[in-house]
Amino acid sequence: MLLEANHVSFRYGTEPWLFRHVDFKIKTGEIVGLVGPSGSGKTTFGRLLAGYETPHEGSITLDGSPVPSNRYHPIQLVFQHPEKAVNPRWKMRKIVNEGWEPDEALLEKLGIMQEWLERWPNELSGGELQRFCVARALGTNTRFLIADEMTTMLDAITQAQIWHAVLEIAEKRNMGVLVISHDHHLIHRLCTRIIEFKDLV
């Protein structure tokens, strides 16, 4: 499968263009790193790919056709701040099962303890919450995962653990992963291809 951004432009309201005419391709099975200075629009680009924003010009296509929007989205985004991405009034079990039901093996791989499932979000740390967000986004219908600074707020051990699990699953399911990060070491460690965002614009 091929995820493409064709000549995509975006701006918020009437503000100046954040980027114009961006072309980008990623195939399933690829782990691509996207780097660039802060404020350059990497995050917004990730949101476009995952369908959180609509481009003003151009289109996002999956194998040449538009991405369906009213069912489970095949391109899933994991945010930088897991605290905002979970409903504080839901227990973790409900949160992680919202889109699909991950099996125990997957939860264990991500280092999620069974007893955490009965807790509320405010009883877990950011690192623990992020594991749940990753598990939630790794549904069987996920073809591409966009990791926007996914582990930036986490300590190194948690970061390594989450990425090992994600890489393993991505390989097994032939998923594509886009890693957006400032951390060059991390990107070099993970990715098969690295792109400077400014080269796209």
Binding site: G111, I157, T158
Partner: peptide
């Protein structure tokens, strides 16, 4: 030690659970 080794530029391991 585990924290240090878990860095991507080192071993990128997660031995400490």
């Amino acid at each position: 030690k585990a924290l240090w080794r878990a860095l991507p530029q080192n071993d990128f391991t997660c031995e400490f659970k």
